[in-house]
């Protein structure tokens, strides 16, 4: 009971802090916090895939990157496309590709699932990279409009932070809510025993397709938010490094915990930012940190915290 109380207090404190951030943090820090919030949504979708359905996605950047590209192309080529419609466009584009890919992916599990997602990731990355006419190839796409939302300028970092926070919070709530729905339970039952779930009469394939499509949508929203945040989209948002970063984030925080991805993306963003200031070879330290973490705390930072209390 004490544990639960503590959990609530920490939650409330973080919530209050999150609202106050633009007023207490310097501009530079605010940018990082915004990035953390946006990427946390992506890490959350990855964690959901592993935790709820037992599927290890090795190509999560596909949904993120395509969401980013779709929304940017929308803002570039459709005159007067509003901010929210652009973000939704990114989400729906990612959901569409998620739906198409899931048709192939639902039959796989374990390592084969991971590797097929990797194959699709590389395939789509190569297409994006080579299709210069539309995607700009290596140069990426920049200089797209940043429409106002309800007359509020999104050029102000504080306003954009609030927008991201609101959207990400809503998406995370939907993710959490999904686990409480009957469909969420079906997905969970597939994870623990697919054969039995099939035998009871659940449509295993369709449940997985819906689940994957939904997560792809959220990942796409995250990508669209990220593109608008960076005011740029390049192949780095869809390549393998992006996919592995997501895995690291989810793992650092702890895959077994709801708030793990948020904590993980926070740790990741801060660690990479500050380590890269001291040394060019920060990935060496980062790799060692990951090894030590998995070695001694396979359940991530929150795993340690839970064991102690």
């Amino acid at each position: 009971m004490r544990n639960r109380n503590l959990y609530h207090w920490v939650g409330i404190a973080v919530g209050v802090l999150a609202v106050l951030f633009p007023h207490i943090l310097p501009r530079f820090q605010l940018r990082m916090v915004t990035e953390i919030v946006i990427v946390a949504l992506l890490a959350m979708t990855w964690k959901m895939m592993l935790n709820e359905a037992g599927l290890f996605s090795f190509g999560h950047a596909v949904y993120f990157g395509l969401g980013a590209y779709a929304s940017v192309l929308g803002w570039l080529h459709v005159k007067g496309l509003s901010l929210m419609s652009g973000i939704l466009l990114g989400g729906f584009a990612a959901a569409l590709i998620g739906f198409i890919l899931s048709a192939f992916l639902v039959r796989m599990s374990g390592t084969y699932y991971a590797l097929l997602t990797l194959a699709f990731n590389q395939l789509i990355w190569a297409i994006v990279w080579k299709w210069r006419a539309v995607t700009g190839g290596d140069d990426g796409l920049g200089k797209f409009p940043k429409p106002d939302l309800l007359g509020i300028s999104m050029r102000d970092p504080a306003n954009y932070y609030y927008l991201s926070l609101a959207i990400v919070a809503a998406c995370m709530f939907l993710c959490w809510y999904f686990t409480k729905t009957p469909l969420g339970s079906v997905v969970k039952s597939i994870k623990s025993n697919e054969e039995r779930a099939k035998f009871i009469g659940f449509n295993v394939g369709v449940s997985k397709v819906i689940f994957l499509t939904m997560l792809a949508f959220f990942a796409g929203v995250s990508g669209a938010l990220y593109a608008q945040f960076q005011e740029f989209v390049g192949t780095s948002s869809i390549d393998l490094v992006m996919s592995t970063n997501v895995i690291f984030m989810a793992f650092i925080g702890g895959v077994g915990h709801f708030w793990g991805p948020l904590l993980g993306s926070g740790t990741y963003v801060y660690l990479s930012e500050y380590l890269s200031r001291y040394t060019d070879r920060w990935e060496l330290i980062f790799g060692i940190v990951v090894v030590i973490l998995v070695l001694f705390a396979p359940q991530g930072i929150l795993g340690i915290a839970r064991k102690k209390t």
Binding site: E283, L284, F286
Partner: peptide, 14 residues
């Protein structure tokens, strides 16, 4: 799987 990833990072950079 994840730990071999960490090793890949560390070894490459080293």
């Amino acid at each position: 799987f994840v730990i071999t990833f960490g090793i890949l990072f560390a070894l490459n950079e080293a």
